[in-house]
């Protein structure tokens, strides 16, 4: 891991990955959209609204995946003072917040015709809303300090505290009575979803993942440049 702590080495690695992740994102999302809009059947109960699932569920997975990654980075940043770990969490936060927002809005658009309501304050929906606020709170906290190091440290602590929310989201549909359906893909005993619907779901999920990798690498690049600007101005102010 420490080999990648060197920003120059990281820059080289990221420029090698970027064209591949960007290309994979374009291909996967085009194939995924074709599967989810054209070559998958309507649901026997939900009709065409089931197509919202191919956005909603991958976005929900990403909202958790990004958060867990940020929390791991936060731990590395706090324990080993890894210079890129802090920057990774900061770079990933807006992307995670974006996925959580997509998950909430598409869920609402799916709930309106199928449940007869845009929103209910049940365990799953409320815990995802809290996740969204954790992302926003982290972004506000990191930028709230004059000293960026202190902001990062405060943000990292928030990320680690907020990790309790992740299992709550995952198991909320089993622990409490809720309108939201239980898991049908990541569950004990294998997925119960039909293959014709699983394919678009997985392709979209991979597309979202490569999108995340691409955008985070670009944002990290920008963060490193901004860090350089900061140190240059500091040395000039002292000189």
């Amino acid at each position: 891991m420490h080999r990648f702590a060197n920003p120059a080495r990281f820059q080289r690695l990221s420029s090698a990955i970027l064209p591949w992740s960007a290309g994979a994102t374009v291909v996967l999302l085009i194939v995924g959209l074709y599967f989810s809009l054209f070559s998958s059947p309507p649901d026997y109960q939900q009709g065409e609204t089931v197509r919202i699932m191919y956005i909603h569920v991958p976005a929900a997975w990403m909202s958790l995946f990004v958060y867990v990654n940020m929390a791991i980075a936060a731990a590395c940043g706090l324990v080993w003072k890894h210079p890129l770990a802090d920057l990774f969490a900061k770079a990933a936060a807006p992307v995670g917040a974006g996925f959580t927002f997509i998950c909430l809005v598409t869920g609402s658009l799916w709930g309106a015709p199928m449940w007869g309501t845009w929103w209910v304050w049940d365990a799953r929906l409320t815990s995802v809303l809290i996740l969204f606020f954790l992302y926003l709170g982290y972004m506000a906290l990191v930028n709230a300090f004059d000293d960026p190091q202190r902001g990062m440290r405060a943000g990292n602590v928030l990320l680690l505290v907020g990790i309790v929310n992740v299992p709550i989201i995952k198991f909320s549909v089993d622990w409490w009575n809720t309108l939201h359906q239980p898991s049908s893909v990541i569950r004990m005993g294998g997925p119960t979803i039909d293959g014709t619907m699983l394919t678009p779901l997985l392709v979209m999920a991979f597309g979202f993942t490569t999108y995340f990798i691409t955008v985070v690498l670009l944002r990290l690049k920008a963060e490193i440049v901004q860090r350089k600007i900061q140190t240059m101005r500091l040395t000039e102010a002292q000189g």
Partner: peptide
């Protein structure tokens, strides 16, 4: 008949 829900979902994303 669900155009008002499906397309906005894809649009927002």
């Amino acid at each position: 008949g669900y155009a008002a829900f499906v397309w906005p979902a894809y649009g927002v994303a």
